[in-house]
């Protein structure tokens, strides 16, 4: 039961990691020039918000172990 829940959260965390990579400090920010560093544009605000996803609702590493256990049946937590 717990594994099922965490797995869906993990998929969500992975996709947000992907979004982070796009936003900062890559194309989405630099295409705006210097304006890209201000709050007049949402890019760095979103990138900073997504930083929290790496640790909230369990760290990415723990989520990774949960996924591993769901896929392989192996408990690698300790």
């Amino acid at each position: 039961m717990i594994i099922g829940c965490s797995r869906s959260r993990s998929a969500w965390a992975s996709s947000t990691t992907y979004a982070r990579r796009w936003l900062s400090p890559g194309e989405c920010r630099t295409i705006l020039g210097a304006n890209g560093i201000t709050l007049e544009y949402p890019v760095l605000r979103h990138a900073n918000n997504l930083e929290s996803v790496l640790t909230y609702e369990g760290t990415s590493e723990v989520h990774q172990l949960v996924i591993g256990q769901a896929l392989t049946g192996e408990n690698a937590f300790s």
Binding site: M1, I2, G4, S6
Partner: peptide, 11 residues
């Protein structure tokens, strides 16, 4: 137990 806090939303 932790069944409560960990698993409630999605189910």
């Amino acid at each position: 137990g932790l069944r409560g806090p960990l698993c409630l939303p999605e189910r």
